[in-house]
Design a binder for these strands. Structure first.
Lengths: 132, 132
DNA sequence: CTTGACCTTCCACCGCAGGGGAAGGTCTAC
DNA sequence: GTAGACCTTCCCCTGCGGTGGAAGGTCAAG
């Protein structure tokens, strides 16, 4: 199958496929006599794996790592579990951070409605944002 | 005050200050005869505002917008309130998204412990990540 | 034979918020 | 007078996940 067809079937672009190959996420496919890439069905499986891993929030670098581990040392289950644990911890931290930020934004928003606009002196840019 | 001193007092770097000036977040300061930047105390206030706005999750582009609005049309309270509302909505969406992702990662992690590693066939990269 | 769709490589660019370092000028202390 | 700390402008680099376009080759249809 040619690159355009694979891209369409996988719901991505030819650009992305070449990028994945360059990033060692996709193995370099066969080439036709004229140099065109010629994929088989396994490429589609690989792309589904990549999409799934991305949907789980793994970076392409992590996906490449899992694939390389698989090729060198067999099924990377432990590796993947560790990656997912790390990812979960990242997410917890990030969510907590965003919740704090959300509260802060809400507080500032409340200031914007309750503060006297006349107090918006010429001295500062905006009294809603605390300067300090 | 020279740029190094301002940077130190504001808890930032000279690189960042020149970048802010270029991005119209800081007004271009006086220059000494030899071309050195020469800041007054108001620069410090401005930097505190920038830090506060950044802490509220506004991008530098948004901060620049608020500053420009302030210079052209006076106190930008309404503008700032709208920005904060948008920011809060962004945060809500982002937090919801991350919570879903967190749940998904947890589900996959559970698969990693409950699935039979022997089922990790040679056909796919990793059976923990659903392919499709 | 030519048009148009497809393919190849390579190089550059996006946003974000600066950081790194070169080449050269200046200021202060010894 | 000279060393070292500071300043200037300039351009390139980072990470992430690709996208855009130029220059040229190939393939099928008309």
């Amino acid at each position: 199958m040619r690159i355009g067809e694979l891209a369409e079937r996988a719901g991505t672009t030819t650009k992305a496929l070449r990028f994945y190959e360059q990033s060692r996420l996709l193995p370099a496919p066969q080439r036709t006599r004229s140099g065109y890439r010629d994929y088989d069905e396994s490429a589609l499986d690989r792309l589904r794996f990549i999409k799934g891993a991305q949907a789980a929030g793994l970076t392409l670098a992590e996906v490449a790592e899992v694939i390389a581990a698989r090729e060198h040392t067999g099924p990377p289950c432990g590796h993947v579990a560790a990656l997912l644990d790390a990812r979960a911890a990242d997410l917890d931290a990030r969510i907590a951070e965003l919740n704090l930020l959300r509260e802060e934004v809400q507080r500032l928003r409340d200031r914007a409605t309750t503060l006297d606009p006349a107090a918006c002196g010429a001295d500062a840019v905006c009294h809603v944002i605390p300067a300090g």
